[in-house]
Nucleic acid binder design. Structure first.
Lengths: 140, 140
DNA sequence: GTTCATGCAAAGGATTTGCAAGTTA
DNA sequence: TAACTTGCAAATCCTTTGCATGAAC
């Protein structure tokens, strides 16, 4: 019932230079199972539901580690909490400001051209496109 | 020495349906003086420097009020703090992740096309484009 | 036996809130 | 007087940190 079993998860971590401790494998099983956007607290909840005992500090450490090693992307769409995105393909986001839902769309659906010259002395580090949406007035 | 004097600020607030209390006028003078990106704390600092006594709570209330009435835009580029942007023209941002600097570029410099269909039951509420940059490796 | 990882509780920091006092019409 | 504003301090919430225990090589 889990697309990513513990063996594969451990293998994936090892491939990215991450020692596959039980806690990290558990986080990987929850988070890298499929493309999704989860906050740290959601990850913590799901770990508890599976009876995997991982502390809050370790969840945060692990998510940051995964993001640093390119297993996850950290999203800044809402100042209330960080979201971690397991979709590694180039893509952008719809963000529903009413319910906090994130939805992906492929980078090559959108066409971006004419990005102006970067500020002096800086190098490109990525583009985020966030299309903010809200509940349609006539659709409750 | 101030592009926006108190009289004009009061007038601007009134035009937007905001009662021009002394505190709000002071925040307006700091924030709406010219196009800039300031955090709440930066606004507080500048108020103190001008000897305008406005409490932290009122600064936050006022910035949110201004944003709600369309006098400012609130930017979500960094989870550590909110930035308030007095540039009301359509534009996007460079965000220097190393030093936190925000730089505008006009919306019509960038060309965005083919925005995919919005998620079911949602209406468009705005597009944010954040081009993240970092210090150039060879330029300290 | 180092070095790395974990977990608990406490700290940290931006933002919000409760509420009493002050202002305005 | 009724409605709105302000400001202080305390509360809140997400995230990080200190540090001692435990695991791994």
């Amino acid at each position: 019932m889990n697309a990513l079993d513990q063996g594969l998860a451990a293998q994936l971590l090892a491939q990215h230079g991450i020692a596959p401790t039980p806690q990290r494998v558990a986080v990987a099983c929850v988070m890298l199972d499929r493309r999704q956007h989860l906050s740290a607290e959601q990850v913590l909840d799901r770990l508890k539901r599976r009876r995997a005992r991982v502390s809050k500090a370790t969840v945060y450490n692990t998510l940051r580690l995964f993001a640093a090693r390119g297993l996850l992307r950290e999203l800044t769409v809402d100042r209330d909490r960080a979201f971690f995105d397991s979709n590694l393909a180039p893509h952008y986001h719809f963000y529903n400001v009413d319910d906090g839902t994130l939805t992906d769309f492929d980078a090559d659906t959108l066409r971006i051209s004419n990005v102006p010259a970067l500020p002096e002395g800086t190098a490109h580090a990525g583009i985020d496109v966030i299309v903010r949406v809200c509940r349609k007035p006539d659709a409750p």
